[in-house]
């Protein structure tokens, strides 16, 4: 069965509905001084899909993610989000639009408990002002408890109930990664970016993480874009894959298409120049 990927929405082989384009990147070019990190790259992310970005080290994957989340401003090209061109924005404004991400090297708040860290994810869902919070009784408390309930669902989902009140600084690496994912998930993002969610993990932890990513996508319908080096994981998880090398896009399509793409094979296995 061949899928018509240009249609507005389609149903995958495992029965999930992939919706219209959420994030559309058009001809992005990013330069640092003389170095061209990203060169004229276009691709899109559709609602409900798991989109992977792969490529050798230094290919510009993380830069791409930083462009999407607003850390880097590309010199050329446009970012379209939900059918509208995105004006230049600070990262917190991007977050307010419904985008959440995790980092390659964990960026959690070490001095706060796991629960507080996850609660920060609810930031854009909380509306009380400073004065109401200073008084606490009434609105602020009600809002806090309502959002706590959402966070508890995320905590249950990611199976971290036992460390709820532990300061993040005391946790081991694998759990920190999970807490960071929980914080991003608590924001109920319409697009979730994961920068190497499985870096430095053992097989079991990778299996757990893959399960969480699939369940997240399945249960909450979260659209996910992820960068990952583990090819097995990427090919199993993702609906579509973008392959980058030296800041250029060398492949884009379903895992099968990408696997058989000669340019991709060359980039990963090397090619002899004789």
């Amino acid at each position: 069965m061949s899928l018509d990927m240009n249609a507005n929405s389609y149903v995958t082989e495992d029965g999930r509905t992939i919706g219209p384009v959420v994030m559309d990147l058009k001809n992005i070019t990013l330069r640092f001084g003389g170095v061209v990190a990203i060169k004229d790259i276009s691709f899109n992310i559709r609602e409900g899909e798991i989109r992977a970005i792969i490529g050798p080290n230094g290919a510009g994957k993380s830069s791409m993610l930083n462009v999407i989340s607003g850390f880097y401003k590309p010199q050329e090209g446009e970012v379209w989000f939900r059918g509208a061109k995105r004006p230049p924005m600070r990262p917190y404004q991007v977050a307010q639009q419904g985008l959440a991400r995790t980092f390659q090297n964990i960026a959690l708040f070490d001095g706060m408990t796991v629960l507080d860290n996850i609660m920060t994810g609810r930031l854009n869902h909380m509306k009380t002002n400073l004065l109401q919070q200073a008084m606490w009784w009434g609105k602020a408390e009600k809002e806090e408890l309502a959002n706590r309930e959402v966070c508890e669902k995320v905590i249950d989902f990611l199976e971290i109930q036992h460390i709820r009140k532990t300061p993040v600084g005391r946790l081991p690496y694998g759990l920190k990664k999970r807490v960071e994912l929980a914080r991003a998930l608590a924001a109920e993002p319409s697009l979730l970016l994961l920068d190497e969610p499985m870096a430095g993990m053992n097989v079991e932890e990778k299996e757990d993480m893959s399960r969480f990513i699939l369940d997240m996508n399945d249960e909450f319908g979260t659209t996910i874009a992820l960068i990952e080096h583990d090819m097995g994981v990427v090919m199993d998880l993702s609906d579509r894959v973008v392959v980058m090398d030296y800041g250029k896009k060398i492949g884009d399509g379903t895992p099968d298409e990408v696997r058989n793409n000669q340019d991709v094979i060359d980039a990963y296995l090397g090619v002899s120049h004789d």
Binding site: Y92, A100, G111, T120, A187
Partner: peptide, 18 residues
Amino acid sequence: RKWMGIRDMDIAAEIIGV
């Protein structure tokens, strides 16, 4: 939490929406 986020890691705080 916003204050502590800025204290502990301002980049992460900003990406979460602070």
